[in-house]
Computed example of a mutant assay.
Amino acid sequence: MATDVRTLADVERAVRSLCRHFRTDHVILIGSQAALLEWPDAPIIVRTSGEIDAYPGNIREWEDRNREPASEEINALFGWGSTFHEQFGFYIDGVDDRTAKLPPDWRAEAVTRTILDEAGELTAVAPSARDLIVSKLHRLTDKDKDFIAAFHAERPLDIDDLLARLAECRPDASVLAGARAFLASLT
């Protein structure tokens, strides 16, 4: 029976699958489930999702060679309704390095996890929790708000720091105003 609560084992399965298919040794995770690298036992609401958003670390090289978006390949082989989805109860949403709005230096604080595979060591890379939340502040859908509020309830956020990180992304004034208002509502 499929569940929409993701685990670190799901993340590891996604990383192994993408590394094998794209012949790379690392995968970048974005979206809610990227938080599992830093907080594997996060509250259920933080881990609730039917998908894991990810892309191979060699995305540009792969796309140059194959002349098609890697995200389309991911969605066809591992996406919603795929054999992978049916077999494992979750799917991989193919994204790329332009999908999430992250601070320019997010990689300096990225969280990594080594995953063992028969081919050797693989690496999962994800934005830090605060940078992941910055990306969510750009959209602020109800799901994003629930994620941020649940995160804040368990691990209080530094609001000023988040707003400074968000400003580094140079968002529209409306995005910044919406983020300020929402973050103020958490205190």
Rank of each mutant, 00 (worst) to 15 (best):
I28N: 11
G31L: 06
S32A: 11
S32Y: 15
Q33V: 02
A35T: 06
A35M: 02
L36F: 02
L37M: 01
E38N: 04
P40C: 09
A42G: 12
I45F: 11
R47Y: 15
S49Y: 13
G50S: 11
A54E: 01
Y55R: 00
P56V: 05
I59S: 09
R60W: 15
R60G: 10
E61A: 14
E61C: 08
E61P: 07
W62G: 12
W62Y: 13
W62V: 09
D64Q: 14
D64R: 12
D64G: 09
E68W: 08
E68Q: 12
P69K: 10
S71P: 04
I74H: 04
I74N: 08
S82V: 02
T83N: 10
F84K: 04
H85W: 09
E86H: 13
F90D: 05
G94R: 02
G94N: 03
V95I: 11
D96L: 14
D97H: 13
A100N: 11
P104F: 10
D105S: 04
R107A: 08
R107P: 04
A108G: 01
V111Q: 00
I115T: 01
I115A: 02
I115L: 03
I115G: 02
A119D: 14
L122G: 01
L122I: 02
T123L: 00
S128A: 00
V134A: 03
V134K: 01
V134S: 00
S135T: 12
L137H: 06
H138W: 14
L140G: 06
T141E: 08
T141C: 10
D142S: 10
